[in-house]
Write a protein that binds this DNA or RNA. Structure first.
Lengths: 150, 150
DNA sequence: CTCATGTCAGCTGAACTGAGATAC
DNA sequence: CGTATCTCAGTTAAGCTGACATGA
């Protein structure tokens, strides 16, 4: 039995837990959650979309998407408009408040990134991002289902 | 607002979620959980300990440790013996079944590692482990409290 | 009929919080 | 006294499952 602390999966989940905690705490100070940021930035980045599309873009389950959008709608950050071309769907759009919110949360995240990755120099940060990206791409595409709504 | 998919913290939590899921599913097939493995391997690796010490070694909270040990004790994998030198403490020891269990779970994890890290070659795996280890060490020691029981 | 969409209620493992009893 | 250990009850965000009604 080898030491747990050298297992990549252990290190991965532990550092992720740290990072997630720091991000969550940071979001909590302004009354937001991770899902809010992901949805808002996806809308700002990729434009209006249906809820199902948003789920695919962000990796958030449809059922969770409903909840997140309820909260964002209550806060005045997004609007749900029925899609006339397909009456099953809503078109989710950012309000002006939502655009501002997306920007301020984005700044928040940028600060937190530096906090989490502080012990790494620039080339190491790039390395880590590249490696994680490789893993993410691989598991996202092949071998595993495209995540939500399956 | 930049794309979420290039943020290290996003990649970190997403890949960790994948890894965690694969590990969990693998454990579930033999009726175990992540906490079980961490506790058993810590005992096999570092020898008998009090519950609080185990918590520090594994990064598991004291309250969760109680639950995990209850389950492991019910399965016959560990024993709780009162410490005569300090009657607040228990001495947690592995049974022979627990030793076997630690080994079999360890093999399971080894397979899962390869599954998760499959897209990376050997030097990339080593890089990733080194980078994560650096982050883990940093956040474990300085800046953040030593995790459980604080 | 099949499939996609949106909604709702609930579950899980992991991490964490707070309170209390006991013993150092 | 303060501190450490163990236990128990509860909370959170994230990810996930199943069921259902509606419409393409």
């Amino acid at each position: 039995v080898e030491s747990v602390e050298h297992l990549p999966s252990w290190l991965l989940t532990q550092t992720a837990a740290r990072a997630g905690r720091v991000v969550s705490e940071s979001f909590a100070t302004v009354g937001a959650r991770g899902y809010h940021y992901r949805v808002l930035s996806s809308l700002a980045d990729g434009g209006p979309a249906s809820q199902a599309d948003l789920g695919r873009r962000t990796g958030i389950h449809l059922s969770d998407m409903v909840k997140a959008l309820n909260e964002l709608e209550a806060g005045g950050y997004i609007r749900r408009v029925p899609n006339p071309d397909d009456r099953r769907r809503n078109i989710i759009t950012l309000t002006s408040q939502g655009t501002e919110r997306a920007q301020s949360l984005s700044l928040l995240v940028r600060d937190v990134q530096q906090q989490v990755l502080q012990p790494l120099d620039e080339s190491e940060k790039a390395q880590l991002t590249a490696l994680l990206s490789k893993l993410y791409q691989h598991h996202h595409r092949q071998g595993f289902p495209p995540l939500p709504s399956m």
